[in-house]
Amino acid sequence: MNPKRKQRLIIVLFIVFGVGAAVGLTMFALSQNINLFYSPTQIENGEAPQETRIRAGGMVVEGSVKRDPNSLNVTFDLTDYEGTITVHYDGILPDLFREGQGIVAQGDLDANNHLQASEVLAKHDENYMPPEVAEALEKSGKMPKPEGEVFNK
C-alpha cells in the first residue's frame, strides 16, 4: 500500500474508532436514561422519582391480578424476582396481558410506592412456538419464562 493510501486508511480508522469511543462513553454515562423503564427492584430501592411520569417493567405475578367487577379497574403486582411493586390501572389491557406475562406500565408512583398506571404495554419475549408445542410445554412445566434480568439490566 502506498503511503498516501496508508495515511487515508489511518484517517478512516481514526474516524470510526474515535466516533465509536466518543459515543460509547456518552452512552455509558447516559446508560440509566436510555432504559425504557425502571425495574421493580429499582423502584423499591427508591431509585425512581415520585410523582412524575415513569415506566415500570416486570412480570405480572401469578394470582395477583384483581379486577373490579363494576369497572375497568385492575390491580396487579409486577416482579423481577427480586423486588415487587403494585400497579393500579383503569383502562383496557392489551390482548397479551395475562399472569406471567412481561409488561411495561407507564404512570406515577404514589405515596405508597404504588404505580398509578395510565398505559400498560405488553412486552413480548423472544420465544415463538405453535399452540400444540406451547400446550405440551405447559403440561410438562417446561414453558420458558422470562428471567429476572430481562427487566433489570
Binding site: N35, L36, F37, V104, K153
Partner: peptide, 12 residues
C-alpha cells in the same frame, strides 16, 4: 436490547 431495558424483545 441487551444493554438496556427495552420494550422490544431480544434476538430470537
Amino acid at each position: 436490547v441487551e444493554w438496556w431495558n427495552t420494550l422490544h424483545q431480544p434476538a430470537t
